[in-house]
Amino acid sequence: MPAISRDEVAHLARLARLAVTEDELDLFAGQLDVILGAVARVGEVAADDIPPTSHAVPLSNVFRPDELRPGLNQEQALAGAPAVEEGRFRVPRILDEEPLAGSGISGEEA
């Protein structure tokens, strides 16, 4: 039995915001199954009482002085944007077109 099904891969692609094609699903499902089979080896290690390491350097609470320093100005921050309007990032609609129940606001961009 495969470790991961084609349907599960389609679900992962949706979660990861990747509009993968049907052909890619066939390809990736097989490849991810092989990779997962190999990486599942970590389970062979008896590590019940071993603490996890998320980071190799034992640093915590790294602070710097709370001093003003220059950041990006508006023009610099917007320089690489795909679309700009009135000094702001212009983005596709982020809400449904139907008015939100009880909110009194419409999803359409004004």
Binding site: R14, A16, L18, A19, E24, F28, L32, P92
Partner: peptide, 23 residues
């Protein structure tokens, strides 16, 4: 737009690793 952009903008190996990590 996000999903279509990431699909067009990322190569196969990047997509594989993103999905593997998501899993």
């Amino acid at each position: 737009v996000m999903a279509a952009t990431r699909e067009a903008g990322f190569g196969a190996e990047v997509k594989r690793r993103i999905m593997l990590g998501t899993y």
